[in-house]
Design a protein around this nucleic acid. Structure first.
Length: 395
DNA sequence: TCTGGGGTCCTAGGACCC
DNA sequence: TCTGGGGTCCTAGGACCC
């Protein structure tokens, strides 16, 4: 009988670290990934040098630029980060089959019952950390605990670049300040403070149900939440915040068409079918609305998705007479049921497959709908493409 | 300071049925 | 002519995470 052991690993300042690795001249400099200073957007990752200036992720780029005028601002190259991430997880899986990819740069590894247990589980944790660093060439922080929550908090204590073992997890957690607990955000924090709750111990004894709810399914709580296998994705979304608010309906629907097209291609490439689609808008006053509708049948066809999306957009635009800041689309109720494949023979599905093929071979913008063509200044056509005929633009 | 993009999960309340 | 109660399903939106 052995205790459960969970290792948590987190790549330090991931996106910034990748950029520094690819361009060593950036080493030791305040690197800020997320966008350029004048742009509408937020900081995605700040290097530790940039954090010294008070820059952190989620901060508006304009604020970051004020706090750190000499910061090196980069837009971010997500396809590269994603490749590094793949190597990160592959390396972890060599040590244990029970690896949960919690995010692009974070994982839980279940070390319970590992052969090396239990006298040297600590050494094993350290070995894994070093192996990952060698493999991807980036510094990571790691924490070992008896639960996911414990391991995660241990990693926090280890940052940057160290390995922290939580020997007395129960005591460590109960005495910790509640804002350190993942799952307790600004809103919950405000409520709890109002109730006079400041530590986990106070929360657990006074409001056990809140404790269970706020910590959610991600972490250990009494009976324990296991390290999960890769859960399958339940929804895919694409959204765009415009550089400037726009009112032109045609331009708005063109943006939406582009997003729906990307979703359609993504679904089709993975032989996935969406059962529902949602459209989201954000007006210039930041008020945000969404509307969703089930599709007639699960599909990845652009024309089916678009038809419903356009209808939802029209409903949403009636909400306010204001310029738009953002438009987005999301597909949900994803299935990969093979028995749905016969629907691919429907005309729209065949067209989708053809378009997808061309996009794959000649680039995403090599073939676009007439509607997307309105955006040609924003998303330049990569080659002389074929323009797919669509119905009237103003339908 | 002016607030991204991509996800997950939860809940209140309406519609509908018996 | 004053309107129950319970169950289920669905939508919109909020909170949270990285």
């Amino acid at each position: 009988m052995s205790l459960p052991f969970v290792l948590h690993i987190d790549i330090d300042a991931f996106f910034a670290a990748v950029e520094v690795k690819l361009n060593p001249a950036l080493k030791g400099k305040p690197v800020i990934v997320g966008g350029l200073p004048g742009e509408r957007g937020v900081v995605c990752t700040a290097s530790y040098e940039a954090r010294k200036y008070g820059v952190h992720s989620g901060m508006a780029l304009q604020t970051a630029a004020k706090r750190c005028p000499r910061g090196i601002f980069l837009r971010g190259r997500y396809h590269i980060y994603s490749r590094v991430s793949g190597r990160f997880f592959a390396c972890l899986k060599r040590f244990s089959p029970r690896v949960e990819n919690y995010s692009i740069d974070e994982a839980y590894i279940d070390l319970s019952g590992t052969k090396y247990l239990s006298s040297s589980v600590y050494r094993l944790g350290h070995e894994i950390k070093c192996a990952v660093e060698r493999e991807i060439g980036l510094k990571v922080s790691a924490g070992l605990g008896f639960s996911k929550l414990g391991a995660k908090l241990a990693t926090e204590a280890a940052k940057p670049g160290n390995f922290f073992v939580l020997y007395n997890e129960r005591e460590f957690i109960t005495n910790i300040s509640i804002e350190k607990i993942p799952g307790i955000g600004p809103h919950t924090l405000l409520i709890l403070r109002g109730l006079g709750i400041n530590t986990v111990k106070q929360l657990e004894t006074a409001y056990p149900s809140i404790w269970r709810r706020t910590i959610g399914p991600h972490f250990y709580s009494g009976s324990g939440f296991p390290v999960r296998k890769e859960p399958k994705t339940k929804s895919y979304s694409r959204e765009t915040t415009f550089p400037e608010d726009i009112s032109d309906r045609e331009l708005i629907s063109s943006h939406l068409a582009y997003l729906v097209s990307r979703l359609s291609v993504h679904l089709g490439e993975n032989k996935l079918f969406a059962g529902r689609i949602e459209v989201k808008v954000r007006f210039s006053d930041f008020s945000t609305y969404s509307r969703r509708l089930p599709l007639d049948y699960p599909t990845y066809s652009y024309s089916s998705l678009w038809q419903t999306a356009l209808h939802l957009l029209n409903v949403l635009l009636k909400k306010k007479k204001r310029a738009l800041r953002l438009v987005g689309a999301k597909v949900e109720d994803i299935t990969n049921r093979r028995d749905l494949l016969p629907f691919v023979s429907v005309k729209g599905e065949k067209l989708s497959a053809g378009v997808r093929d061309i996009k794959k071979r000649f680039g995403f913008s090599s073939i676009v709908t007439a509607r997307e063509l309105l955006l040609k200044d924003i998303y330049p056509v990569e080659r002389e493409g074929i323009v797919l005929k669509t119905a009237s633009l103003t339908k």
